[in-house]
Every structure is written in structure tokens, then in C-alpha cells.
């Protein structure tokens, strides 16, 4: 070895404008997605309204006023009244609480279970993967609505039970996504490099690979919130939803009998479900583009 050894002078870089962080980049790309921004704004509005429901509404959601039965929307009753003369606006605000809580928590349960199954299956592979994925297939092939119906009919209709039922039936597709990501990521050289440094298995899975799958998990979670709200509404509409306080689905169900005389009872909560779920899907879409610029 007789090449001259050139040490680079240790220089300090000139002051550069602060580089944008990852999150700043995400926010910048998300902002360009108009529909997602509008949706996000709408969701914030709905959330605030749901949280502040008692302060906003002028009537108690349980207040029965037989004299005001089936009134059309007016200044006093923005969304009209139902058969018992209860204010639909107040009920819808409170229903927003229930539907959003169910949506978020059920999606959370689904994400936890789905990620766990996906991580274990994808990282270990082999027979572990086979067993977990066949289990996932079973869950996917199962007619979920009937499963939901059966379980919901047997268990008391509390928020917790409904959340668990929905959450524990909607994880399989997420598990597949996470597993797929793991299968390709664990072959990456940086994983081999981590192994060559003596890093433990669980640490490689959790601190080296999992962060690389966060983007699809967040997107999946967002989409799943909308899905869970819809699932709860479906359950409520066939009578096994949360009734007191009513979710949007339960209000829909209650208005069904008087659909011709008082369409407003079903129209407003129906629109709320529709727009909210749509908004979650748009936000999910926007996040997908923003989190992974390579897809574009």
C-alpha cells in the first residue's frame, strides 16, 4: 500500500437554510390535495360539534314533546323532530359522538391486531406465516355481517362490545398489508446490515422494519375509521346498534318507519354518515399521497 493518504480537511458547512423535516414535507404535499384538505376541515368541524354537543343544542336529546311530533326543519328544530317530538339536531350531534368514538376506537383495535399479526407473520415467515395467513384468510372469507349480527345479538349492546366486534373483524386486510411490507423489507440490505451488527430479532422487527411500514398503516387506519362508522350504522339500522345515546345509524333506523311523512329524520343523519365516511376516505387518500411521494 503506497498510495498517499489524503485526509480531507475537516470543514464546517456554510449556513444552509434549515432543511424541511419529514413531517413538514408530508404537510406540504397533503395541503396540495384539495379534497383531502376540505375533508379534514369538515372532520374537525364534526368532531368539535360532537364534543361540544350539549353546549350547541338547545334541546336535550331525550326531551319528549308529543305536541311537536314530526315537525319539519325550522329555526327551532334545525333538522326537524321525530315521532316523539325529540329534536333530531340534538340527537344527531350526540350521535356524532357515538359514531366517531366507535369509528376511532374500532379502527384502533383493528390496527393493533392487524399490525401485530402482520409483523409476526412477515418477520418470521415459514410456518408461523402460514398459520397466521390462513387464519387471516378464514376471517376474510367469513360473512362478516352475519358474524356481527350474531355476536351483537348475543352480547349487550354497549359501545365497548360494538367496538370490539367491529375492530376484531376488520383487521385482516391490514395484517396482509403489513405482512407484505415486511416480506419485502426484511430482504433489504439494511436489515442484513443490522443483523451483521448483532441486533436482536425483535428489535430489528420493531425499530428497523416497522417504522418503514408506518405510512401504509396510517393510511389503512384512516380508511378503517370510515369503514367502522359504516359498519356500526349498518348494525344499528338492522336494530343491533347503540341506542342510548343513539348513534347516527340508530336515528336512521328510528326514522325508517315514518320515512314518507318525515324524511328529514333519516335524511340528515344519513347525509352525516355519508359525508363523514367520504371525508375519512379522502383524508386517507391524501395521506397516502403525502406520506409516500414515490407512489406519484
Amino acid at each position: 500500500m503506497n498510495l498517499p493518504i489524503q485526509k480531507q480537511p475537516s470543514l464546517t458547512l456554510p449556513e444552509m437554510p434549515a432543511e424541511e423535516t419529514y413531517l413538514q414535507g408530508v404537510w406540504y404535499r397533503f395541503k396540495r390535495h384539495k379534497l383531502a384538505m376540505i375533508s379534514l376541515f369538515f372532520l374537525l368541524l364534526i368532531s368539535v360539534a360532537a364534543i361540544a354537543a350539549p353546549q350547541i343544542s338547545r334541546h336535550d336529546y331525550r326531551e319528549v314533546m308529543p305536541s311537536r311530533s314530526l315537525q319539519a326543519p325550522s329555526r327551532e328544530h334545525l333538522m326537524g323532530t321525530d315521532r316523539l317530538g325529540r329534536d333530531v339536531f340534538s340527537r344527531a350531534l350526540l350521535g356524532g359522538r357515538i359514531s366517531l368514538i366507535v369509528g376511532f376506537t374500532a379502527a384502533f383495535v383493528a390496527v393493533i391486531v392487524g399490525t401485530l399479526v402482520g409483523v409476526v407473520a412477515g418477520y418470521f415467515g415459514g410456518w408461523v406465516d402460514d398459520i397466521l395467513m390462513r387464519l387471516t384468510d378464514v376471517f376474510m372469507a367469513f360473512p362478516v355481517l352475519f358474524l356481527l349480527l350474531t355476536i351483537a345479538a348475543v352480547l349487550p349492546k354497549t359501545v365497548t362490545n360494538i367496538v370490539l366486534v367491529i375492530g376484531l373483524t376488520s383487521w385482516p386486510s391490514l395484517a396482509r398489508t403489513v405482512r407484505g411490507q415486511f416480506l419485502s423489507l426484511r430482504e433489504m440490505e439494511f436489515v442484513e446490515a443490522a443483523r451483521s451488527l448483532g441486533v436482536k430479532n425483535y428489535r430489528i422487527a420493531l425499530s428497523y422494519i416497522l417504522p418503514n411500514t408506518v405510512a401504509p398503516i396510517i393510511v389503512g387506519a384512516t380508511l378503517r375509521i370510515g369503514g367502522a362508522i359504516l359498519a356500526e350504522a349498518g348494525l344499528a339500522f338492522i336494530g343491533v346498534g347503540i341506542i342510548d345515546p343513539p348513534s347516527w345509524g340508530s336515528i336512521l333506523d328510528a326514522g325508517r318507519a315514518v320515512l314518507r311523512q318525515a324524511p328529514w329524520i333519516t335524511f340528515f343523519p344519513g347525509m352525516l354518515i355519508f359525508i363523514t365516511v367520504l371525508a375519512f376516505n379522502f383524508v386517507g387518500d391524501g395521506l397516502r399521497d403525502a406520506l409516500d411521494p414515490k407512489l406519484k
Binding site: M188, E189, F190, E192, A193, A194, S207, Y208, P211, N212
Partner: peptide, 8 residues
């Protein structure tokens, strides 16, 4: 390019 973890 690929032996360093992009997120750490």
C-alpha cells in the same frame, strides 16, 4: 444506498 435504514 440500501444498507442504511432510511428512517433512522
Amino acid at each position: 444506498m440500501t444498507s442504511l435504514n432510511p428512517l433512522l
